[in-house]
Computed example of a mutant assay.
Amino acid sequence: MLVVFPFLAALTASVSWATGIVLAQMPAKALGAFAFTRIQLVACSLLVTVLSSVLGLWQSIDWGYWPAFAISSAVGVVLGNLAMIECLRLGGPRITELLLCLKAPIVAFLAYVWMGEVLGPGDLLGGAFVIAGLLIAIQFGGEDRQRHEGLGRQLFPVLMLGGMAAGFQGLGFVALKPALENGAEPVAIAAIRLSGAAVLVVLMGALPTSIGSRQNQQSHRGVSPYLLFRTIVPGVIGYVIASSLLLYAFANMEAAIATILGSLSPLFVLPILWLVEGKKPNSQSVLGAALAVTGGAVIVGS
């Protein structure tokens, strides 16, 4: 039953990301995507770096895995997030979430090619239930259904950006699995990937012709302490807590299953919005959640 602990870690990561998504809406709109991401990455990288130093977690890191750390920072965090944000801007949240469901099969393929991981029948069945439930909840639970129907010529770039985001983020986590299996502490790994990503984003923002530079001039003039606090809190929940929990799951179970269970934030957003904003989930969303729970039970029992 040791699988229960990484299973719960991946689920808790999904809950954390869902909470962060809800909390991030206001500051993200106020600051813009690039400035919002930069503040979060810089603050969270400093936090986990200090935490890793205080707890003495750096001793668990084998720096021979530095190429994997670089891939995870540059590709998984920076490119993956930028592609996701642009997909979200062009296509809306529902089609973005649908496309990010591609992360699980991409991770399964990468883990098979890279590490020879093969899923058992129970894992495959449970994973299929979870993905089906997730797709149903997103497909029928969104409020922007008509938005992607009028995308027209933008549909191809939206599909391309969503696929790139899923692939980049999946590769960023799979690249770290060997280091995690070698005993690296998830919090220290999170510190490395966030610090590398923060440096890259700061450098990108410093370029005079970059999007980040323009957003910096527009949004940082009026950043109040309250807005700064509202920006950092969801970052800590997502980048620090959720990422560390998912990295722990990656170290202790198959990468594809960890990815599936760690991608359930669209389901958990529904009850959170119900509690916070009074938006009651519809019957299709409840059906999707029930399928996902069934799939999780199959995975644990297999």
Rank of each mutant, 00 (worst) to 15 (best):
V77M: 12
G162S: 08
L110M: 12
I192L: 09
G64A: 10
V286N: 06
L8C: 08
L51Q: 08
P121H: 05
L46V: 15
Q139F: 14
S224K: 09
A290D: 03
G120K: 06
K280Y: 09
S224T: 15
S244M: 08
G32I: 15
V75M: 07
L267C: 13
V199G: 05
K177A: 02
Q139H: 03
N81G: 08
L57F: 11
L270G: 07
A251W: 05
L51G: 05
L264K: 03
S302R: 11
V201W: 15
L270D: 09
L176K: 01
H148V: 13
V22D: 07
A206N: 04
V75P: 00
K103W: 07
V130F: 02
L227M: 05
P67W: 14
K103F: 12
L124W: 08
A68D: 04
L264I: 09
L46G: 07
V48Q: 06
E149P: 02
Q25G: 11
A68N: 04
L79G: 02
W274F: 12
G205R: 05
V158Y: 00
P67C: 07
V269A: 12
M253I: 03
A190T: 14
P6S: 03
R230I: 02
M26A: 11
L176P: 00
L125M: 12
T209N: 09
T294E: 06
V78C: 09
A137Y: 02
T37C: 05
L100N: 11
G152W: 15
G133P: 13
V3R: 02
P178E: 07
L41K: 04
V78S: 02
F69G: 00
V298Y: 03
G288Y: 03
A198K: 01
C101H: 10
A297Q: 13
I131Q: 02
I136E: 05
P67G: 04
L247H: 02
V15S: 09
F250H: 13
G170W: 00
P6H: 04
S213R: 13
H220I: 01
I61S: 08
C44S: 07
A197S: 07
L264V: 06
D62F: 00
G262W: 15
A28E: 14
A258E: 00
L267H: 00
L98D: 10
L57D: 05
A132H: 03
L110N: 11
V4K: 12
L245I: 08
W114Q: 02
A35Y: 01
L245Q: 05
P186K: 10
I136G: 11
T209W: 13
R38E: 14
A184Y: 13
V199A: 04
L82D: 00
G235C: 04
G222P: 00
A197V: 13
A33N: 15
Q284N: 11
Y239M: 08
A188I: 14
V223R: 04
R145G: 12
A255Y: 07
A68P: 02
L227S: 11
W17C: 03
G288E: 06
G126Y: 05
G295C: 08
V3I: 15
V269T: 08
P208A: 05
L227D: 14
S302A: 14
Q59R: 14
V3L: 14
R94T: 11
I106R: 03
G167L: 10
L246S: 05
V75S: 09
N81Q: 10
Q217R: 09
